[in-house]
Simulated scan of single mutants.
Amino acid sequence: MPSFIPSGNRKPVVLMTMGAQPRNGHAYQVMTHKYITPIVEISDCVPLLVPTCCGTADLAQYLDMADGVYLSGAGSNIDPSLYGQENLTPEKQQDRERDLFDIPLVRAALDRGLPILGVCRGMQEINVALGGDIYQKVYSEPGYNDHREDADDPVDEQYGLSHQINLVPGSWFAELMGQPSIPVNSLHGQGIHRLGSGLEPLAHAEDGLIEAIHAPAISPFLLAVQWHPEWKASENPHSIKIFEAFGEACRARLNRAIAA
């Protein structure tokens, strides 16, 4: 017999979209543990893992169950045709099914006023969903550094702190972090070029690349970052603040829904 959870004891539900990964001739939908655990352990929310391989017919029903949306990173790139460019990295994996799910998901979540957190690819998805575009090869752009990890390094070194980012002075994110700059890791070959409608920068790398964004005019809580705060999040005070803030935003959204 199904149990009933009193509304006062209910944790917020966070929708997390999965991605494609072929294994041994089979198509898988996957989500890495490192993205899930901070939502449970720090945000104190319940993750709802959603497949992106079946289209968007049930998107509204998924969102009916959600108090927030979390768009993770992934090993695949966004299809450049979705932001009006030719593919300059044909050797890199793409996941068009995730693209075609997450882009309308972002727009629908914004329409509902759901809190949104994006990491790496997730940040780029938000930007593309709102009409922006990205550098396909940041490392080839004049004036920008190479933000990629060394694939031959051990994982702990790949995800180790790599460079400083400068937070926009006076922004809520700078206040949340409690300092004007913070160190972050760096594992991306692509990055934001032209910002989408309603998006504003919250932080820049030392070379000027946008490292964090929000959307104060169109969302009560949207935070997206280019680095990977989920990596050993419980050991990083800045990551803890990010996931706590997202959890509180999801709780506020849930409480408003309960009170309505």
Rank of each mutant, 00 (worst) to 15 (best):
P2F: 01
S7R: 15
R10G: 04
K11R: 10
P12L: 10
V14F: 11
L15S: 07
G19M: 04
Q21G: 00
N24W: 05
G25R: 13
P38A: 02
I39M: 15
V40H: 02
E41A: 15
S43H: 12
V46G: 00
T52D: 09
C53Q: 04
C53V: 04
C54W: 03
C54F: 08
D58N: 00
D58I: 02
Q61T: 12
L63V: 06
D64N: 12
M65G: 00
D67W: 03
G68M: 04
S72V: 10
S72P: 10
G73H: 04
S76W: 01
P80Y: 09
N87K: 04
R96M: 11
L100P: 04
F101A: 05
D102H: 02
D102I: 02
P104M: 12
P104V: 14
A108W: 08
A109W: 05
R112I: 02
C120K: 03
R121D: 01
G122C: 08
Q124V: 03
Q124G: 11
E125Q: 05
Y139S: 11
V155T: 15
E157Q: 13
Q158N: 07
H163F: 11
Q164D: 12
A174S: 15
A174L: 02
Q179K: 14
P180N: 08
V184C: 07
N185V: 07
Q190V: 00
H193E: 05
R194C: 13
H204N: 06
D207M: 05
A212K: 01
S219P: 04
W227C: 05
P229L: 09
W231A: 12
I240N: 10
I240Q: 10
A245C: 06
N255R: 13
R256I: 03
A257I: 02
I258M: 09
A260R: 02
